[in-house]
Design a protein around this nucleic acid. Structure first.
Lengths: 247, 247
DNA sequence: CGCGGGGTTGATTGGATTCAATAGGCGTGG
DNA sequence: CCACGCCTATTGAATCCAATCAACCCCGCG
């Protein structure tokens, strides 16, 4: 299951994006071809590079790497609101013609694919399935946000971390970015993880240790190993239904 | 400003809904009329009534009252994810054909307006502005969710409560549900407020008291008085831009 | 008049932050 | 090639914000 997508996709990130979209809504060969022809592959962006909003005027897709949306508060505290993984739209503003008020930064070497907003509009008219897929992607993004609210509101530190690790496991599995042995790359520091789940760096560290001691996961050099997915989902109280990936 | 909408609207809740939609995207007289003809006014629902998901198969609009979406965790803890005020769509599943995994409950006597999903689909084709308005509403809903994430993640108890009171002030102002004297009805108990902002009932109580002592607000019998909006927004670190209401 | 829900208050507990210090990894530059 | 500095991970100790436990008051209502 974990490498099904991987073997199918090969390693072209545009194919990965098309595969991801197809999970939301099947796309015929014509629509896929149209997307292939319209998408422009951007340069490789180094980690910790902030993306300017003007760079978001096109429809942007993360082809490879890792991106976070976040807000910086006056007192220096930072909250990450969204994690963007390969195959995801960077921002859904194109659907409604608005721009987000959040900042946007890479945490790994990343490549962005762009489609001119106007060109995308034409494609959406020509291939309604493409539009539906994008809207479903936005809906899943919103569902992920609601789960984050629940985590931050009523889950314990261990549950929050277990939840986000589960979520990433399922999201990355869907695009073939998990290994058959049960691991995936997580290019975030513990400080960044804390900014995502609302915990201090120190507490993230201690809580991850306790998760490791349960045997559910192990960590090394930016890699997460899911040792016991059953146990991890149980610890998190996690139900992947909201990701709409069971297809 | 606060009663501009109110005087314009009179008190027909369907007009309030149309007014709210028009703030997202102007609607011509024809589109408004079509909506007026398609919408079915539901019965008055008592407080604390849970809405069944099947009741959400139509496009549902809150005409009057108050609705919360929430998740109940195994350990009895509850998190409210969304506050629905009059003029809002109850749920945006109709845009993508999915249903939310959350529960849904009234906290006040409420009336829901319904448009058959199929009928709404036709209207959306006939009046693209109506579709755009709905999509913008969904986008603002998502933006509100992101702000909640930020509140729960990095804001203090006082900031969270001040934020949500600000948010409601602006949202309710837009639909004429704030008084010229600077008050609005908040049909939520302190326990429910706590479930929304991730605080215990007791701490909500103490924090509201400290907000009152600053002179920014006062409370009585389900009414919130905004005594000093400047001070309140400053305490909250609140910027209403994300609500897209400046129009 | 008793009951229950919501609001308020005090005392205690506890989870998480903060402060502080150490260790390891990695790239840069001497 | 090694020294240095920086970033990340880790650990310990002290502190603090908020939760929990426990009363009590008020009020509307049966």
């Amino acid at each position: 299951m974990s490498n099904f997508a991987g073997t199918l996709l090969g390693n072209d990130p545009v194919e990965r994006f098309l595969h991801r979209l197809s999970l939301f809504e099947p796309l015929d060969a014509e629509a896929r071809d149209a997307v292939r022809r319209s998408i422009n592959r951007g340069p490789l962006i180094p980690p910790l590079q902030e993306l300017q909003p003007d760079a978001l005027q096109d429809v942007s897709v993360l082809l490879s790497g890792w991106i976070c949306h976040f807000r910086l508060l006056g007192n220096g505290r930072r909250q990450i609101t969204t994690l963007v993984v390969p195959g995801d739209f960077v921002d859904f503003g194109f659907l409604v013609g608005t721009v987000s008020s959040l900042q946007c930064v890479t945490t790994a070497h990343s490549q962005i694919g762009r489609i001119r907003t106007r060109a995308f509009g034409k494609l959406a008219l020509q291939f309604p399935a493409l539009l539906r897929a994008s809207q479903r992607a936005a809906a899943v993004d919103a569902a992920i946000g609601r789960e984050r609210i629940i985590s931050l509101g009523v889950r314990t530190a261990a549950e929050r971390l277990a939840s986000i690790l589960c979520e990433l496991w399922f999201r990355l599995s869907a695009i073939g970015l998990t290994s058959a042995e049960g691991s995936y790359d997580l290019p975030m520091t513990q400080a960044e993880l804390g900014a995502a789940v609302g915990l201090s760096t120190v507490h993230v560290n201690r809580t991850l240790q306790s998760l490791r001691r349960t045997g559910a996961i192990s960590l090394q050099s930016g890699k997460v190993w899911i040792r016991d997915l059953e146990k991890l989902t149980a610890l998190a109280g996690f139900d992947p239904a909201y990701l709409s990936l069971q297809a």
